[in-house]
Computed example of a mutant assay.
Amino acid sequence: MIDNIKLEHFRNLVSLITADGKIEEVERVALFKIAYTLGIPLDRFNLMLERGHEYRFLIPQNNLEREKQLEDMIELALVDGDFAPAEIELITMVGEKLGFTHAEITHIIQTHSEALK
């Protein structure tokens, strides 16, 4: 059985990937690797991708999970080498809901962008 917190986190990642209206192959592969690690069956994974635009973001309950989720979102958004405006908008919106200031979110995004270059 899949841990509910991990499943919620995965749904949030699916929401991020589908935010720009398209799923790049590199994004699909990255999500699939995570799904496989979590034990999510292929048919459920495909269904989640199809319905990704329907998911609402679920906010983690502790600071460590909040930071981890924001960092995972940024890393996944950068898998294709670029931020789509919709991805930045979603990361910013979620970051603010997680309790980060706009300046903190911008700094975290820049730090991760530079680390991947």
Rank of each mutant, 00 (worst) to 15 (best):
H53K: 12
I74W: 09
G52Y: 08
K6H: 13
G39N: 01
E65Q: 15
N62H: 14
E67G: 13
R56Y: 08
T111Q: 15
R56T: 10
L116T: 04
D3I: 04
T18Q: 12
D43P: 01
I23Q: 05
P85G: 03
Q61A: 11
D43T: 10
T92W: 08
E24W: 02
D43V: 11
N62M: 08
I108A: 12
N63T: 03
F57T: 10
T101Y: 05
R56V: 03
F83Y: 14
G99M: 06
E8H: 14
E89K: 13
K68A: 13
L58D: 14
E8D: 15
A86I: 03
G95I: 05
E8V: 00
I23G: 03
I105L: 11
L64G: 02
L49Q: 05
I105Y: 04
N46F: 03
R44P: 00
N63P: 01
D20F: 11
K33G: 02
I17G: 04
E71M: 10
I40R: 04
P85I: 12
A86L: 13
A84R: 11
N46A: 07
I74Y: 08
E89P: 01
G81K: 10
G99T: 00
D20N: 15
L70Q: 09
D43M: 07
I34Y: 10
I59S: 00
F32D: 02
V79I: 07
L31R: 08
M48A: 12
K68F: 13
I74K: 08
H107M: 11
N62D: 15
M93N: 14
P41H: 02
D3L: 09
L70K: 10
G39S: 02
D82P: 03
L38V: 05
G52E: 03
E71F: 08
P85F: 11
R11W: 03
M93V: 05
M1F: 14
V26H: 00
G39V: 01
D72V: 00
E104A: 14
M48I: 06
P60F: 08
H53Y: 12
D3S: 13
M93Y: 13
E96F: 11
D3R: 11
I40D: 05
I74M: 05
Q110V: 05
E8C: 12
K22E: 10
A30K: 14
L31S: 04
Y36F: 01
A19E: 09
V94E: 10
L47V: 05
A77F: 01
L49H: 09
D43N: 07
P41N: 04
T18G: 02
I23P: 00
T106R: 13
E75C: 06
Y36D: 15
P60C: 09
L31C: 02
Y36H: 11
G21S: 11
G95P: 00
A35C: 03
V14A: 09
E27P: 02
I88M: 12
A103G: 00
F83V: 01
A30C: 07
I88T: 13
E96I: 14
L7T: 02
E65T: 07
D80F: 03
A77T: 04
L70E: 09
A84D: 13
V14K: 11
L76R: 04
E71V: 13
F57L: 13
G81F: 06
L38D: 06
A84I: 01
F10M: 06
T101F: 06
L90C: 04
